[in-house]
């Protein structure tokens, strides 16, 4: 896997490996299966005479895939548990990463989103610049910058300390994903506030509220309700966007499925299990958000249908 190769470079550059290389990420296996030029033969398509694929097996002739749905209960090569357990721990990381990143996205997004609706022109400019910066650079590049570049740019000791953090990849992914998503949240918040009738702001001012109070008691409670559905889909995007974090070594769900595929050779079982988990996860979030939306709805304002 890419992770492994990258890490070896880092190891060479710096004094020591700052993350233990588990057996799961042995460079040799990993490299051969992933690079398109090298060894697309044996490791990926093992056992040329087994089973069937999509019912096309013609009597006795051998086709190449051997289904084995029991694979989930086999032990992983590093003997820390079953493949199922490995996927579950991946799911845990995915959820945790999504939640942490969402916290950053929501807080920063709200701040920037509100700034863009203020009367002060500099606030609008700063807000716009923030959004443009985080929206126009691919997430993967932003992850690399948080992981590889930021520690280099920090003053000496701090940088070294960060590089040696055990959960460095997780923190980098959390910051990268959080700030990336915050630009999208900010755009939604601005849209929500601007969607309110102009009279609401004036009415707030008219009864003597300060700008801050107008936001706190009138504009924001309404705006958040209006943008609840798009915010839900941004949260779902956050969950999906945890997957690229595997490139900097976060062992989330897709990474676990990937390593399961590598070691068990059960390509379809591994990835369809991961796909099913993502589907369930997004279904649960969608339903949960719908219930929450109903509970927060104001009669006659945004009850929906």
């Amino acid at each position: 896997m890419r992770v492994a190769r990258v890490r070896r470079v880092r190891g060479r550059q710096r004094v020591k490996h700052w993350l233990p290389l588990t057996r799961l990420e042995r460079p040799s296996v990993v490299r051969s299966t992933l690079s398109p030029q090298a060894g697309r033969g044996k490791k990926q398509w093992p056992g040329h005479c087994m089973g069937f694929w999509l019912g096309t097996a013609r009597g006795g002739e051998c086709v190449n895939y051997n289904w084995n749905w029991g694979i989930f209960w086999d032990q992983t090569p590093d003997a820390t548990g079953t493949y199922f357990g490995s996927l579950m721990s991946g799911l845990q990381v995915t959820i945790l990463l999504a939640l942490c990143a969402w916290f950053i996205a929501f807080v920063m997004g709200s701040l920037i989103g509100i700034m863009r609706t203020l009367p002060a022109r500099w606030a609008v400019f700063v807000g716009n610049a923030y959004i443009e910066m985080f929206r126009n650079i691919p997430l993967l590049v932003q992850l690399f910058i948080w992981f590889f570049v930021v520690p280099e740019l920090l003053p000496g000791d701090l940088g070294i300390w960060i590089k040696q953090l055990r959960n460095g990849p997780f923190i980098a992914a959390m910051l990268g994903l959080g700030f990336y998503m915050s630009s999208r949240v900010a755009a939604q918040i601005t849209a929500g506030i601007n969607a309110l009738p102009k009279g609401q702001r004036m009415a707030g001012t008219a009864i003597g509220l300060t700008t801050w109070q107008t936001y706190r008691y009138i504009l924001l409670p309404l705006a958040y309700r209006i943008i609840f559905p798009p915010l839900t889909s941004e949260f779902l995007n956050t969950i999906k966007n945890t997957a690229p974090a595997l490139t900097i070594g976060v062992l989330e769900l897709t990474a676990r499925a990937r390593s399961m595929q590598e070691f068990s050779f059960q390509v379809f079982e591994a990835f369809s299990a991961a796909a099913a988990i993502y589907l369930v996860l997004s279904a649960v979030v969608t339903i949960g958000m719908r219930i929450l939306e109903k509970r927060l709805a104001i009669p006659g304002f945004n009850e929906g249908k």
Partner: peptide, 11 residues
């Protein structure tokens, strides 16, 4: 739309 693109790329 429910699957991460990375997973789909692998799959």
């Amino acid at each position: 739309r429910s699957l991460p693109l990375v997973l789909v790329i692998f799959l």
